[in-house]
Design a protein around this nucleic acid. Structure first.
Length: 425
RNA sequence: GUGAGCGUAGUUCAAACGGUUAGAGCACUGGACUGUGGAUCCAGGGGUUGGGGGUUCGAAUCCCCUCGCUCACCCCA
């Protein structure tokens, strides 16, 4: 019988790598705490409709990447491919637009997209994200970018670059899209097959295309760029944002071709990229989504946020940190030599556990030699030995692995010494 | 969805033109050392060579199919 393996594009996160995850989670929580963004945990699956309407019917995510399935009640459900639409759903569902219109939330957890796995891309992957809903101000865009930047900085990630763009609002985007569509029609066969369809259905996405023919079109002098079509308010919004970023000393560049693959973005769009991950170079991305609420059937509600790929951050982190250095070392190795030793040491375990002191308890009738070797391998400096000899004396043996010194003592004395030893660490 | 590369013990790798019983290091377990340490020596467990089919007297090796992994396209976190 063949072994069952994990499904394609998924994996176990275990061993020393888990300490890198803890590190990322810790930094995210600390920044969230500092900026007072509250955690929200939405379901792993939602109505398919939520993503179809929120993310956009003609996006790649909705058209070919969703894990969609009917449940036994005939509902169409989808494993969440991203976190923003569910959060806006929660905001509206709880009536926050009425009772508490301004919220700052963060989230962390698995997302699912049906894609061919490659470096930095999995079918189940993890994101954390920050969302500020109810704030139309450019300063709030800046806070979101600042948070993304700060998390990266606190993790020690280097060689990151920030690109921003402005996709316009309902007022100016329509005119731009119309102009763009007219222009693309004139280009006809100069576009790749894919972009001919995009020109009709989702013309902004043409700017993303890397096909050589399309690149030529996109970079031709006559090609209309969003930046040249921004209305007064959008222009101002972007100027304000850029001014704040400069004052914050966050360096960025304007990428007029940055459009991003989700429909809900308006005005600010941004991406943080790295040069160290191969083809999947976006570490974090986000922007403003003032149309999302309406798309979900709610009233107009402004929002801005970002999501970051945890696997990608961890890949970068793994190059800087030795994960084992992040592990909290056990202080004590409890070495039973027989059943009586196990009993005696389990009492110690209860004592240590009550005080949240880390220890490792072995079981069985292993020899002293085995225990000392293992303690050494685990890098634990103090070994407590218990066997029949100790039981007869009513004592336990304390051994210091560095000095080699060992002392037999009564339980009460040993407990006191354990506490004293903990203080040193 | 498309393309390329790769699948041999837990792991890293061997096995000349197809050749008889698929080996080694590391790791693990035990012993030398009957209750005291990263060394040394000895021994042991582990494999349907990813799976299936074909060619052949004979396949880890050649052919086909399939599955998986990796990277890239696509797209994104």
């Amino acid at each position: 019988m063949s072994l069952i393996r994990v499904p394609k594009g998924t994996r176990d996160i275990w061993g020393e790598e888990i300490y890198l995850w803890h590190k990322v989670e810790e930094v995210v929580r600390s920044v969230a705490y500092s900026f007072q963004y509250e955690e929200i945990r939405t379901p792993i699956f939602e109505s398919t409709e939520l993503f179809a309407r929120g993310v956009g019917e003609v996006t790649d995510i909705v058209q070919k990447e969703m894990y969609t399935f009917p449940d036994k009640g005939g509902r169409s459900l989808t494993l969440r491919p991203e976190g923003t639409a569910p959060i806006m759903r929660a905001y509206l569902e709880h009536g926050l637009n009425i009772s508490n219109p301004r919220v700052k939330w963060f989230y962390m957890g698995p997302m699912f997209r049906y894609e061919r796995p490659q470096a930095g891309r999995m079918r189940q992957f993890h994101q954390f994200g920050f969302e500020a809903i109810g704030f139309p101000q450019a300063a709030c865009d800046a806070e979101i970018i600042l948070i993304a930047w700060l998390v990266s900085k606190k993790l020690g990630l280097e060689n990151l670059s920030l690109e921003i763009n402005n996709l316009g609002c309902n007022k100016c985007r329509d005119e731009y899209v119309k102009t763009l569509q007219d222009f693309l029609k004139g280009e006809g066969d100069n576009l790749c097959a894919n972009c001919k369809i995009r020109a009709e259905k989702n013309p902004l996405r043409v700017l993303d295309c890397k096909e050589e023919t399309c690149q030529k079109v996109i970079h031709s002098p006559a090609f209309p760029l969003v930046q040249d079509f921004l209305c007064e308010e959008c222009r101002e919004h972007q100027d304000d944002l850029m001014e704040i970023l400069r004052e914050l000393d966050i360096s960025f560049s304007i990428n007029p071709y940055l459009v991003r693959g989700l429909d809900y973005y308006t005005r600010t769009a941004f991406e943080i990229k790295t040069g160290e991950l191969g083809a999947q170079d976006a570490v974090a991305g986000g922007g403003r989504y003032d149309n999302l609420s309406s798309a979900l059937g709610g009233p107009p509600v402004p929002g801005v946020g970002f999501a970051a790929g945890m696997e990608r951050m961890i890949l970068l982190l793994a190059k800087k940190y030795d994960p084992s250095s992040l592990k909290k070392q056990s202080l004590f190795y409890l070495a039973p030599l027989d059943v009586s030793g196990e009993k005696a040491l389990l009492k110690l375990a209860s004592f240590l556990g009550d005080r949240t002191i880390p220890f490792y308890l072995e079981f069985g009738d292993k020899r002293v030699k085995y225990h000392l070797k293992k303690a050494q391998k685990m890098g634990i400096n103090t070994v407590i030995i218990a066997g029949k000899e100790e039981k007869e004396r009513g004592e336990l043996v304390w051994k210091d692995m560095v000095s080699g010194e060992q002392i037999s003592m009564k339980e009460e004395e040993l407990l006191a010494k354990l506490l004293e030893e903990r203080k040193k660490c």
